[in-house]
Amino acid sequence: MNPLRSTIETLLQAAVADGVTPSAVCAVALDNEVLVPVVVGDAVRYGADGTELPVESRIKATVETQYDLASVTKIFTTLTALSLVDEGLLQLSEPLGRHLPQYRSAAKGRVTLRHLLTHTSGLPALWEGWREALETGRGFDREALIGDLLELELLHEPGKHFEYSCAGFNTVMALCELITGKAWAELVQERVLDQLSAAQLSGAPVLEQCAATEYQPELGRGMIRGIVHDEAAWALSGGTASSLSGNAGMFGDASSLLSLGEALRTGLASILSPELAEEMWRPQVSTEVISSSGIDFGHGLGLRIAQRSWVGDHPQARGHNGFTGTSLLVDKSIGLSVVLLTNRVHPRRELSDVQALRRAISDACYQHSARSNTISEEAYGTQL
């Protein structure tokens, strides 16, 4: 067995045995070699009533299991928006008010698409208009909810503070829909997914192929499976199985998400122009804003840069993680893409944290790369 794959399998088995997550799948591409994905654990371990199932009734995870990617979805949102920039339908640094009436006054008049994609718009982290709609029994009227989202007031001056904002990425979605007159799922499909040829990436997955996430009887959802876990995305989809939103809602298996990682690593040739693909990778947030905001990582367009808490001390690493326990790491400098998919929120979000597992997987991949390079150099030297 490949030594890296053996190490990853040991790490995943320990995580499942220790109750960090019911299941985990990891896929890696290194120096154009794709490892067979490692799969451990149960895609469904708890039943419709939230109780643990007998071993014989559980559903094992497989390489085909689709996971709720949560905020990894933001990469797809970024690519969709940037494809409109490439066509001249949007500009990164123009005020949103050119298109959105709600962004034509006071500080909101200075918010740009670049601010939204780097979490420096000044918007709050969350939009919770869905909660009032649910509690009052009005139901999820998408047009009304989008209107409520766009009325959010800023917490900070645009460009002056980093505030990780799901609300900002749903605003990107609303902007793109308005510009094109097309539904969000259609835009993402034609501009990103069709170019990747990854059929297992979807905002409307087949329930039976999905790993379960959280048990939410308090929201009338029961055990969530095949429907987005994120409540805002759920509401903005009208509470239906077609759940893709700007901040969350993409589902996929490990190999399909790895195809996105490899596309990012090699320049996104079929999706973006070379100039815009490189701009996506480039640091966008000043050191002053990073320092004053209390974060220890950089940010490109839709990509986190060298976030040590889960990628380790690797300054060229780019990627994104997701609340449900997912992540995508890409490093051009060593030809590396790493996908980790878990359903750590099954059956409750409070039960575990997968940051240590993410970092251990990352470190294992970097260490293997370093060893492989050393062996190659020694072999080459011997041949000389």
Rank of each mutant, 00 (worst) to 15 (best):
L244F: 05
T171I: 14
M223N: 10
Q209W: 07
N321T: 14
D353K: 03
G238Q: 09
Q367P: 06
G226V: 09
E33I: 11
A81W: 08
I75T: 05
E143H: 05
A24T: 00
G322K: 00
D253A: 02
H320I: 07
L35R: 12
G139F: 14
L154F: 01
P37W: 05
F140N: 00
V38E: 01
T240R: 05
S237I: 07
S270G: 09
C166S: 15
L178E: 15
A70M: 03
Q383S: 14
T324A: 13
G97R: 06
G109Y: 13
T73K: 06
T80K: 00
S273A: 13
S23V: 00
P95E: 07
I271Y: 14
E64M: 11
G294D: 10
C365T: 00
A61T: 01
E262M: 12
G249Y: 03
S327Y: 02
S259C: 12
L276G: 00
M280V: 08
A269D: 15
E157T: 15
I295L: 08
H99I: 06
T77L: 11
T136N: 13
S293K: 13
T10F: 00
A235W: 09
L329R: 02
E163M: 11
A235Q: 08
D42Y: 00
Y380T: 14
L134H: 10
A248D: 02
L134C: 08
V111Y: 06
L193W: 13
L35Q: 14
V85S: 03
A212S: 14
